[in-house]
Amino acid sequence: MADNTDKAQPIAVTAHDLPLHCPQPGAPLWARHPRVFLDVLKEGKAVCPYCSAQYVFSGERPSGHH
């Protein structure tokens, strides 16, 4: 998972990052907010309702998810 220092740039996530939640581990203190889980598999992308970070799923989907 790439560090998101530019909120305009989507963060690429893979099956390894699931279940996806924001903020990510290691986020700087200023970027902390209540943890929210995001369904990035539904549309291939998700936006955090707290900080507007954009996540885009890439790679192979995990088995059992459509």
Rank of each mutant, 00 (worst) to 15 (best):
S52V: 07
Y55G: 00
K45S: 14
T5N: 06
H66T: 11
V56F: 00
V13F: 01
T5H: 04
S58L: 05
V13I: 06
V13P: 02
S52E: 13
V36I: 15
C22D: 13
I11G: 03
G64I: 10
D3V: 15
N4G: 11
T14S: 08
A12P: 02
H33W: 10
A2M: 11
H65V: 09
F57Q: 06
P49C: 12
A8F: 04
V40E: 00
P19I: 05
P25T: 01
P28N: 10
S58T: 12
R32K: 15
W30S: 12
A31Q: 14
P62S: 13
Q24N: 04
A8D: 03
E43W: 00
L38N: 09
P49M: 11
L20E: 10
S63D: 07
L29D: 06
P62F: 12
G44N: 09
S63F: 03
K42A: 15
M1R: 13
G64S: 11
W30N: 08
A31K: 14
A2S: 11
W30A: 11
A31D: 13
H65A: 08
F37G: 03
D6T: 10
W30L: 04
P10T: 09
P25N: 05
E43R: 00
C48P: 02
G26E: 04
D6P: 07
P34E: 14
V47C: 02
D17N: 14
H21Q: 12
A2T: 11
V47Q: 02
P23L: 08
P10G: 09
P10V: 08
D17K: 05
P19E: 13
K45R: 14
T5I: 08
S58H: 06
D6E: 13
E43D: 04
P19D: 14
L18N: 10
V36R: 08
C51Y: 07
P19Q: 13
E60R: 13
D3E: 15
D39C: 10
K42S: 08
W30C: 02
A46Q: 00
A46L: 01
V13D: 04
N4C: 15
K45C: 06
F57P: 04
V47P: 00
S58Q: 13
C22R: 03
I11R: 11
C48M: 06
S52D: 14
G44M: 05
L20F: 07
C48R: 10
H16R: 02
S63C: 03
G44Q: 07
L29F: 05
L38G: 07
M1Q: 13
L20S: 07
L41A: 01
C22S: 12
P28D: 11
H66D: 08
Y50S: 06
V36S: 05
Y55E: 01
R35Q: 15
E60K: 13
T5Q: 07
K42R: 15
M1P: 05
